[in-house]
Amino acid sequence: MGLFTRDIKTMNDLFVHQLQDIYYAEQQLVNALPKMAEKATEQQLKQGFLTHLDETKGHVKRLEQVFQMIGIQVKGIDCPAIDGIIKEANETAGEVADKAVLDAALINAAQAAEHYEISRYGSLIAWAKQLGRNDCASILVKTLDEEKATDKKLTSLAEGKVNLRAAS
């Protein structure tokens, strides 16, 4: 089912579709983050990926809770956006020989994923409220806050040392 298909007829249909999309995305990131941590050479970056892996596993559990609250079977649907972000990150990482530059590239890839997630969670929260599901919105807000915090940490790490090391 594509985003703009006749299968989505109501705001609730759209809400469920995007829940399934972000559920798939979070599962893909659970698989990608350990590989990113393994490739990272800067210790804070490596640890940051592992910390966010634990958070991401929590995001999956929260999404499962939302599915249960709305009475929908837990399932993900293919998300070409996150697949593309991860594919691009893997391709770029494979092309970078300089480890300092690799760390900068990994941060860039991680922020692309974070920004995707931030946009999805923001919409889901707005839609949940519109649908009268403030209970779901409050759960999703916790995840959105963690995604924003991770993005800020990545920016701080990039601007504080990683980009400087990569440029020298």
Rank of each mutant, 00 (worst) to 15 (best):
K57R: 08
Q20M: 11
E147F: 07
L164H: 12
E95V: 03
I86M: 07
G132C: 08
T51N: 15
T92Y: 08
D83S: 10
H52P: 15
E26V: 05
R62Q: 00
E147Q: 12
D78T: 05
M36G: 07
N108G: 09
E42W: 11
E146P: 05
D145R: 04
K153M: 13
S156Y: 04
N31G: 06
C136Q: 11
D135K: 12
K87H: 10
H59E: 00
S156L: 07
H59P: 03
P80Q: 02
S123D: 07
A104N: 10
K75Q: 10
L33F: 06
A128H: 09
Q111I: 02
I82Y: 09
A100C: 11
M1Y: 00
D78I: 02
H52S: 03
G132R: 00
E95Q: 14
S156V: 07
E95P: 09
Y116P: 15
T56E: 09
Y116K: 11
R62S: 01
L140K: 06
D103N: 12
I72D: 00
A81D: 06
G132E: 03
N12F: 07
V16G: 00
D13T: 01
Y116D: 14
L19G: 05
K87G: 08
E91A: 06
F4A: 02
I85F: 15
M1I: 00
H115N: 12
D98A: 05
T56Q: 09
Y121C: 05
